[in-house]
Amino acid sequence: MNIGIIGAGAISNFLLQKLNGRQDIKIKSIFVRDKEKYQSLESNFQVTLFTDLDAFLDSDIDIVVEAADLHAVKSLIPSVIKRKAVVLISIGALADVELLKEISHLSNEYKHEIHLPSGAIGGLDLLQNAHALGLVTGVSLTTRKPASSLIDEAIDEAKVVFEGSAIEAIRQFPKNMNVSIVLSLAGIGFEKTRVSLIADPHIDKNVHHIEIVGDFGEATFTITNNPLPENPKTSYLAAMSILGTLNRLDGRLRIGG
């Protein structure tokens, strides 16, 4: 499977390092806005850089990994999905209901899949299975983050900085609440999924606690994320979830789901 990546940041570099030298999954092309800035990637990882989207999509790739930002999803993915399957990382963009409708329609029309990695959380397969008959009644996410990553003021005790729906969480904290969007899409929707965001001066890692209630029973998950060694602003698990998604796409034995 040949991969094209949009973006050349921390996630892209993680994938390049982990997939470099593999024969079954290869990164062949990278779409960037500034080719000169990232020129070293071509020699370091034997990839080709593109600044023209059509030329990028014409290259020898089977699937596109979006590893850029919300703007890239909005401006590029509607064109990409017409020609290639997509692994979408900046899932927060799908809080824009019109954009979600557009790319879902294009995915159906052009028969190209959109894959949403679980990112910094887990349990999405359980949530989807439990909601197969529409009988999950409650989903909540409580996220605790180091206070300095959320607020400017110095605090001595944990402080709730947001409580409300997932749709409002991503609007107010677009760089911090991607997990609330993928959780909503897997379960009971943006409006019904409840989110609490806590700034905690006593922690140095992000902690996500998920509670699910329905006819199946109850489930809880707590995930404490280590940062990506190369970039402390990125979750290690979020990066690995993309690699795991690509590995599963290329395999024949599918577990869970």
Rank of each mutant, 00 (worst) to 15 (best):
L133H: 08
G4I: 06
L185S: 11
D24N: 10
A186S: 15
E157P: 06
F216A: 10
L16A: 12
S59M: 08
L135Q: 14
D34W: 05
Q39S: 13
N225M: 10
S43A: 14
A85M: 02
D52L: 09
F190V: 04
L237G: 04
N231Y: 12
I63N: 06
I242K: 03
D200V: 02
L53V: 11
I203D: 09
Q17F: 00
D69F: 07
L183P: 05
H208Y: 09
L127G: 06
V73G: 02
E230I: 06
T143F: 07
Q23K: 04
V64H: 09
I81H: 06
I77E: 11
V179H: 12
L49F: 05
A239G: 10
D215A: 08
I27L: 08
H209C: 02
H131G: 02
E109C: 00
I91C: 02
V213Q: 15
R252F: 14
G7A: 05
L197M: 00
I5W: 02
L99H: 08
G92W: 01
G257I: 01
K74C: 05
G21T: 04
G9Q: 10
E66S: 15
G164Q: 06
T143N: 12
S148N: 11
D54V: 04
T222H: 01
F190N: 11
I103W: 09
I3Q: 13
F45E: 03
S107M: 00
I242P: 06
T142A: 10
T220I: 15
N178D: 14
P117L: 03
E36T: 11
K111Y: 03
H112R: 03
A147C: 09
L100Y: 13
G119V: 06
R171G: 15
V80K: 07
I223Y: 14
V86Q: 07
E157Y: 12
G123W: 05
T48P: 02
V160A: 02
S12M: 03
L100E: 11
V86N: 08
E218D: 15
N129I: 11
G122I: 05
L15C: 14
K82T: 08
I151M: 00
V136K: 03
G92Q: 03
G4H: 11
T234V: 14
G256F: 03
N176M: 02
L249P: 08
V87S: 13
S59E: 14
K18V: 10
D60I: 12
T143I: 13
V160I: 12
Q172K: 13
A85S: 12
R252A: 14
I210V: 11
I6F: 15
R33W: 10
P146H: 05
S118W: 01
T193R: 02
L243R: 00
K37Q: 12
A219S: 13
G92A: 04
I212H: 00
L49I: 04
S90P: 09
N13Y: 03
P146M: 04
P174W: 05
S235K: 06
D60P: 13
A166R: 01
K74V: 05
K145W: 06
M240W: 15
I167D: 08
D125W: 01
I151L: 02
A120P: 03
T48R: 05
